[in-house]
């Protein structure tokens, strides 16, 4: 029975990783941009939510609602004024710019918020749990997982049901032809990054409520997110969820055997999937 419990906890943890990864998957799928600052942006959003809750004494969910549009504008501006300038055939410039941003953000947060561990207070929700018969799960992990599914459904609705989504897909497939049809790829990119930052804010909300965070933990979240995206396959959001679940289950199983093996087991699962399916489990786009 302990194994069932471990696996269920792993699946629910996978929901959190899928939330980390969804924004990355979105940006990567549309413009092949690897944002190495993604993890640090999640931590940045978590600090923003914390700041709003503590300053105005608001509920963290309401605070995230306030932070989301701010993050959207930041993401939009980041793409519009910085990343769009370096996007091109050569993948090196955007990689290096986001790497610079990652280091700058980490150290900026270190100066602004110190290296102390923080947590977004979530009240009674933090420890509440529900008995599902075979296993007992916390409300928080369950809510995280449900949110991950909601986010993915929402993004898929935007992708396949709206004009904006059509523009996203067209630009993803062929930016030159898309621009002949009256789409401005750079504007689309800016909106996509803004949208990704909204997802980042949601990820940050759960990260901050579930565990302690400090300015230095961004890169590790980026690695989990990336592993989930690569396992899932480029451009498939459901694949990203599957990837997150695989990492989550591997981690909880590893931790059940030896607590020191938790992170290691996740990475090994990633390498094994890569060995068998180098393009991930459910690749949608080519490359």
């Amino acid at each position: 029975m302990i194994w069932v419990d471990t696996i269920v906890q792993g699946i629910l943890l996978g929901g959190l990783y899928a939330l980390f990864a969804a924004g990355l998957s979105l940006v990567f799928g549309i413009m092949r941009l690897v944002n190495l600052a993604h993890g640090d942006l999640i931590i940045f959003a978590a600090f923003a939510i914390l700041l709003i809750t503590s300053t105005f004494g608001l509920n963290p969910f309401v605070a995230a609602l306030i932070a989301a549009p701010v993050m959207f504008v930041l993401g939009w501006a980041l793409q519009r004024f910085v990343l769009n300038r370096v996007l091109g055939k050569d993948i090196l410039p955007p990689l290096l710019v986001t790497f610079g941003l990652s280091v700058a953000l980490q150290n900026g947060m270190l100066e602004a918020f110190s290296a102390d561990s923080q947590r977004i207070p979530a009240g009674p929700l933090e420890s509440a749990s529900v008995d599902l018969g075979i296993v007992t799960v916390g409300w928080m992990p369950l809510l995280t997982f449900a949110t991950a599914i909601a986010v993915i459904i929402g993004l898929n609705q935007i992708f396949y049901r709206t004009a904006l989504g059509r523009a996203f897909r067209a630009t993803s497939d062929d930016p030159v032809t898309a621009s002949l049809m009256g789409i401005a790829p750079k504007g689309i990119f800016a909106i996509a990054t803004g949208l990704a930052m909204v997802v980042v804010t949601i990820a940050a909300l759960y990260l901050g409520m579930r565990a302690n965070f400090d300015p230095s933990i961004g890169p590790a979240r980026l690695i989990y997110a990336f592993e989930a995206v690569i396992i899932g396959g480029l451009g498939s959001l459901w694949g990203t969820l599957a990837g997150g679940i695989i990492i989550g289950v591997a981690q909880t199983l590893g931790a059940a055997i030896n607590p020191e093996w938790q992170i290691l087991a996740g990475h090994i699962a990633f390498l094994v999937v890569l060995l068998v399916r180098p393009r991930g489990l459910f690749p949608r786009a080519v490359d």
Partner: peptide, 12 residues
């Protein structure tokens, strides 16, 4: 930390 912050911004 300002040092690394500067370094990152210079690289960008």
């Amino acid at each position: 930390a300002w040092y690394l912050l500067t370094l990152g911004l210079i690289a960008i």
